[in-house]
Amino acid sequence: MGKPSEKSLERVERMVTNFCEKSGTFRHPDPKITEGVVLGLAANLDELGRPLCPCRFYPDKKEEVKHRTWICPCDDMNVYKYCHCLLFCTPEGLPVTEHLPADHEGRGTWGEVKDPTPEKGRALKHKAEEREAERIARKS
């Protein structure tokens, strides 16, 4: 993948800043982690017109963007407040996992990480059942 445009980089940076505030999450303490993900999102924004999550493999990216699931901030973030990419973290740089289903891979990887700001975020938490059904039916 080539270097993304300045316009897309600025747009993604703005989105990250605004969404951290809105969701009560924080950037990773290692700026290189955030920088990499921002570059990936911006590159996908250039290529696909949407900031598709760069921490997954999609057999067909163009098909994938027809779904809402992995457009950042993704459904896992909006339902469970979980960011596999580590873009939206706790102050310690961990992903929030306490709202995830018990068998979600995030729980297996990180254990239970408490939400430091439960009053914020999870705008789509009422869609948890829908998300769970999709997570099982459509892996990507």
Binding site: I33, T34, V37, G40
Partner: peptide
């Protein structure tokens, strides 16, 4: 290791 350049956890 299946990874991608712009994946935060992959870098970690």
């Amino acid at each position: 290791d299946f990874w991608a350049e712009w994946c935060g956890p992959c870098r970690m």
